[in-house]
Design a protein around this nucleic acid. Structure first.
Lengths: 251, 251
DNA sequence: GGCCCTAGCTTGTCTATACAGGTCTAGGGC
DNA sequence: GCCCTAGACCTGTATAGACAAGCTAGGGCC
């Protein structure tokens, strides 16, 4: 401790197991087949005994490989049935469903909302598919800009399943945020998020008062309530003034 | 069993064992000592052979218990030395910080890494502050592009606390990802993330093969191990081809 | 003192064997 | 035709024995 001189030992004693442990090879073998497309999500993976025959390892070794891939979320195992490729990998990221109004107020600023559009629409085929509803189903549509003081912090474009949240269109969203209304009438059961970066189209750029080359963070959120898809929202944030943060802390 | 009598399905009599696997008991035995305070962070855990004697299990069973606790970040193991408590109050990590290589392979593509830079550096005042280390401390620096097939999917710019992860610079990061190495020598205790969108500087743009007006998703990750900041990484992803996703499900 | 070398510990891996319990199906008894 | 059972196959767990490689302390040699 306390040595002032930087000296790096580049001798390589340990890096990983020497060449490759056999259970690692089994893992790689399975991952390769998933990678090569010959094993797709939901399909069955060779059983432990099949791997024993194919790769000439003991069953315990095959077991360890499959068990670890299961712990990693790559596979799903069912005793008595078999081992299967898990559904499309989701990089889990702990993003809370938070109310934008609370977030802004918690930072010590005033929250103000401008309702750009609020109307009922019939589901286009594409929207119907995303909602898992028949085409033409009744949806609510809202487009709202949320301001932090004088600056727009979020453009919220939202479709709502009116069966799951009746009365959506009757709200004054300058006083209540859609989020606040929705959690009251349609208790949150599950939420799916995807987060991506993009340079937004002109329509969004104007509402966020962005320059043509500025990036923006898009959070696409799908919320479930009572087994139905209650709402699909696209939340645009200016890249320069907004960031998500999350801490993963084992309990 | 050819008994002619209809068998009674009695639930209780012999049905004790399924409730507790022996390796689970070993895990619980160790966890109890950690939570009870008789084993503190950094202290030595009974060796596999000691557990064999104390708990009358086979060494493989003790091995599995310690191995899984290590994967969970509760323990640290050092071949030839022993097993030690990694940090207080770590029970299980609910969310793993995923390995980019596994992520790409699980999506059915080949992962390849190009090491742009790998060297030792002395911490600048700013870096020292972010690491909570004295200025001039020895850090490892790596700049790596991760490819999904032919396309760059992530530029990983990483600083590593060499006290927390000695030997970092001796790795061949085309074969092992920094993540794989780090979780091995410095078990993850906590991770802080911030996510933002930006149009990257030219240096990053080149590595990701992006146009001048394309957006990019930046994940800034700070990982803690054994109470120290082990690593600070900036992960850049092309906005057009990468998205984070997460499902939140209240329990 | 300073050096090397080894004995004895540690983890890490692999195997063969065994038993338990879940799940599915073909075939036999009614 | 229906039910029900036996067997085949699956995962899950447990064990004893074996070999490899990393580390350390201590003994003996220079």
């Amino acid at each position: 401790m306390g040595a002032g001189i930087v000296s790096f030992k580049v001798s390589a004693p340990m890096a990983m197991p020497p060449a490759a442990a056999r259970y690692q090879k089994v893992k790689h073998y399975v991952l390769e087949r998933i990678e090569g497309g010959s094993l797709k999500a939901g399909e069955r993976v060779p059983s432990e005994n099949e791997l024993v025959r194919e790769l000439a390892v003991s069953r315990m070794t095959a077991n360890r490989a499959l068990r670890e891939l299961t712990a990693d979320g790559v596979l799903v195992r069912l005793a008595g049935v078999g081992t299967f490729v898990a559904e499309a990998r989701v990089h889990a990221h702990p993003l809370e469903v938070r109310n934008i109004g609370d977030e802004i107020r918690a930072r010590g600023h005033e929250h103000r909302a401008r309702v750009v559009a609020l109307e009922g629409v019939a589901a286009t085929p594409e929207l119907a598919e995303r909602f898992e509803l028949p085409a033409g189903a009744a949806l609510g549509y809202s487009l709202i800009t949320h301001f932090e003081g004088a600056h727009p912090l979020q453009v919220e474009e939202r479709y709502v399943n009116l069966e799951a949240a009746p009365g959506y269109l009757a709200n004054d969203f300058t006083r209540v945020t859609p989020h606040e209304f929705l959690i009251r009438v349609a208790p949150l059961q599950r939420a799916e998020h995807t987060v991506r970066a993009l340079v937004p189209e002109r329509r969004i750029r104007r509402l966020l008062k962005l320059e043509a080359d500025e990036a923006c963070l898009l959070i696409r959120r799908r919320t479930f309530s009572q087994g139905r898809i209650a709402s699909i929202a696209d939340l645009y944030h200016p890249g320069s003034r907004y960031e998500l943060s999350a801490t993963i802390q084992p309990r």
